[in-house]
Computed example of a mutant assay.
Amino acid sequence: MSERADGPERELSRHEASAAVLDLGWRYVLGTLRTTVPVASIAHAADVAALAIDVARSHADEHLRIDLRRDRVVFTLQSLSAATVTARDTDLAERISSAVTDLELRTTPDVGDESLRSVQIIEIAIDAMDIPTVRPFWKAILGYDDEPGRTGPADPLVDPLGQSPAIWFQQMDESRPQRNRIHLDISVPHDEAQHRIAAALSAGGTLRSDANAPAFWVLADAEGNEACITTWQGRDG
Rank of each mutant, 00 (worst) to 15 (best):
S164I: 10
T133N: 15
S115C: 08
V29D: 02
L24K: 00
S115H: 14
G234N: 00
A19V: 06
A215C: 05
I122S: 06
A87C: 11
I229K: 05
E104T: 12
A227H: 09
D221L: 15
T35Y: 12
I182Q: 11
I42C: 00
L184W: 07
A198T: 07
W26G: 02
G234I: 00
E147D: 05
D210F: 03
L30T: 07
D191M: 01
C228L: 01
D191E: 08
G152V: 03
V188K: 06
V39E: 13
A49L: 01
L30G: 02
A19K: 05
E11C: 09
D102M: 09
V158I: 12
V111K: 02
G234L: 01
A166C: 03
R65I: 01
S202L: 10
I167Q: 06
A198R: 11
R106W: 03
G205D: 04
G224C: 04
T151Q: 08
R69S: 11
P132S: 09
D173E: 08
E147M: 12
T32C: 10
L77V: 00
A56K: 04
A203V: 04
F216D: 12
A43R: 11
A198Y: 00
R34N: 12
P8Y: 03
H15R: 13
D110C: 04
A40N: 14
A128Y: 01
V158N: 05
Y144F: 13
G237H: 12
Q171A: 15
W138A: 09
T206I: 08
V134K: 10
D61S: 12
L68K: 15
H195S: 15
R179Q: 13
G143T: 04
I126T: 05
T133M: 14
E114A: 13
D221W: 09
E192G: 06
L68T: 08
S98T: 06
D210L: 08
P109G: 07
A83E: 10
M129L: 14
L68F: 03
R27E: 02
E62I: 10
M129R: 09
R65T: 07
T35W: 10
L64M: 01
H44W: 01
L161R: 11
I141G: 14
V158A: 09
D191N: 04
G162D: 06
Q120L: 10
G204R: 05
Q233G: 01
T32R: 11
S118K: 08
V158H: 07
L116W: 11
L207G: 12
N180K: 05
V85P: 00
Y144P: 01
V74C: 07
D145C: 03
